[in-house]
Design a protein around this nucleic acid. Structure first.
Lengths: 358, 358
DNA sequence: CTGAAAGCGCTTACAG
DNA sequence: CTGAAAGCGCTTACAG
């Protein structure tokens, strides 16, 4: 492995001069000298040692991305966006799947700090654990101390994200679209209140209702895990309670797909008897039967902007916070409501005309 | 940012001693001294500088994973497996999505080399471009020179993978299962011959046929991209040619899903009129209608073994190569064949009884 | 069990 | 435009 010393020797210059031409900064070096150094470098197959360089620069061109789980399509898409831009800037991207485990997250950030990563991007939303947040803030402060950029793509410990997606606006738009289709009673399958993203989406549901002039009725809301099982359970709970609705809006696609499956099992036709809408537009959303109407999030772009933001911070700027718009994707799972409301048509255990729990 | 010097000073010992207790190697240090150093370290919130350490050790605890695209579920699953084990070993994982672009792959490996990554794992299969392979081999040699481990999870430039999945065996097992269901004419949608993985799977198709005592007929094979579009196109080509078959085995799930959709459009019932089988068992395979019979690959485990292999190499061992078994997942898309062959039942443009092109 | 010192491979003021 | 030298923060023979 040739070092800069070998290159300098072969070129017959000092290592300072060799460094000046090799480090690609535009130092004033005479053309012939520069030439000789470049030749020596290629001859020796010189590859600079990023560790040595980083030791001096106090950081290395590496960006860590904190995700819930890299196999979750939401996050792999965001990571890919980060990678798109990182590649252009000569940065390597490290993935940190914390499985929403505060301890793992802290330990990853500590590792990133120890590696003197130039930036961390938090793609997954935070926890409300104070002890954990203190430890995390401590490491983040340590990172900022050596000049690293810290970027959040979702709410994190009460701090506003630097770049984010308009969760509330997206759900609100879907609710309004459902109202425009003629729905008057729209139920909502929310995620767990412990997740800030889920809270934002629930907020969007209220906003959409308000914008459409419809009242908010908490009996039409069910909380649960953001999974298919959660969707099935949500449908059952709503029905057991005799909730009356013609459309079901969900906090994410998995929830919606779970609901779709459950309705199918129950022999309830979507969208003829009930409309179902998701959120995220994961790949699977286009493949279900019926295909899912949902809200598309510009995830890859979110990742790109996240890196750009970090890049700007690294060059000493103070970039603007940014909220990226979502877009509606109406497919087969939504349609105008049937003449009567669901409970009037469907056999539920305890249903009554107005959806009041029996 | 406290350095080891600060810790040593506060503890009243030399930095050599501080290093000996902090580097976690089991050096002989008196208990009270060790205690004082540890206290000083926590007091100062000391986080070791991995760059300085790596500069000395000539490598850093980082593993790069080369993938086609991190958003492809196949690869994100493998990466997650790598991450599972890397985490235990204190390694960080860098993802390198090369989009099957030789130049990008080479540039990523160069970057990994410059960062003195402890290991590279190639999850995606290689190219046959000689110029590219020379550049790649050069960087890989450079990495081995400083002690890095190089692991392949699929065939790469004629080299046997260190750890891999039994592609041929998996397809062969599916073909045999289809024969066991009663199918005698089984068509195959292969991937592009330029991909070694695709070649292995085609080989498996031949193996399975041979094992079941069925002849290989090249008119029942179609090549194309490993995508849904490729699946639809493959079905059309087979039919246009009047190929006669009761089961369609595909080189991957996307191909199979594309075929499923195409058959649906054509009004051909799966599995009543034709059985369809995939390969990979991506998440989507369980969600299609009908759900897809396929071959499950232990992808996460593949990633784990890949890291384990690297880890063993790093500790100076010479681990055994390993081929991981696949398993059949029979769902709704396969069933016994109809009494007559497809062409006898279905209206195709140029079909005739024996499937010979008109 | 502990310390002084050299060295890992770069970069960047500081002189000239 | 070029070089000598200090320093980034560690680890590890080498002595004692």
């Amino acid at each position: 492995m040739a070092s800069i010393t070998d290159v300098a020797r072969l070129a017959g210059v000092s290592i300072a001069t060799a460094s000046r031409v090799l480090s690609s900064a535009d130092y004033a070096v005479s053309a012939p000298t520069r030439q000789r150094v470049l030749e020596a470098a290629t001859r020796l197959d010189y590859v600079p040692n990023a560790l040595a360089r980083g030791l001096h620069k106090r950081q290395v061109p590496v960006v860590g991305v904190n995700v819930h789980d890299i196999t979750d399509p939401y996050f792999s898409e965001v990571v890919r966006g980060v990678e798109d831009r990182a590649g252009d800037a000569g940065y390597l991207v490290i993935i940190c799947s914390s499985d929403r485990d505060p301890e793992r997250e802290v330990s990853y950030v500590r590792l990133l700090r120890s590696m003197r990563a130039g930036a961390v991007i938090f793609a997954s939303s935070g926890f409300d654990d104070p002890a954990f947040n203190a430890a995390l803030d401590n490491h983040l402060a340590g990172m900022r101390a050596y000049g690293a950029a810290v970027v959040h793509l979702s709410p994190h410990a009460r701090r506003e994200p630097e770049v984010s997606v308009d969760n509330a606006g997206g759900i609100a738009a879907m609710v309004e679209a459902l109202v425009a289709l003629g729905h008057r009673e729209i139920a909502f399958l929310a995620g767990p209140t412990s997740l800030s993203v889920a809270r934002q989406r629930l907020e969007g549901y209220r906003d959409g209702l308000a914008a459409a002039g419809r009242p908010f009725d908490e009996r039409l809301v069910e909380h649960g895990g953001l999974s298919q099982v959660g969707g099935a359970v949500g449908v059952d709970r709503l029905r057991a309670r005799g909730a009356s609705f013609t459309a079901l809006c969900c906090a994410n696609d998995l929830l919606a797909i779970g609901a779709l499956r459950r309705f199918e099992e129950l022999g309830i036709h979507v969208p003829r008897q009930v409309s179902v809408a998701g959120f995220d537009d994961i790949e699977m959303a286009a493949m279900t039967a019926p295909s899912l109407s949902t809200v598309r999030l510009p995830l890859r772009e979110l990742g790109r902007r996240g890196f750009d933001y970090a890049d700007h911070v690294l060059s000493g700027e103070q970039p603007e916070h940014e909220v990226m718009p979502t877009s509606l994707v109406m497919r087969e799972s939504t349609a105008p409501p049937p003449a009567a409301t669901m409970t009037a048509q469907l056999p539920t255990h305890t249903a009554n005309a107005r959806g009041v729990p029996a």
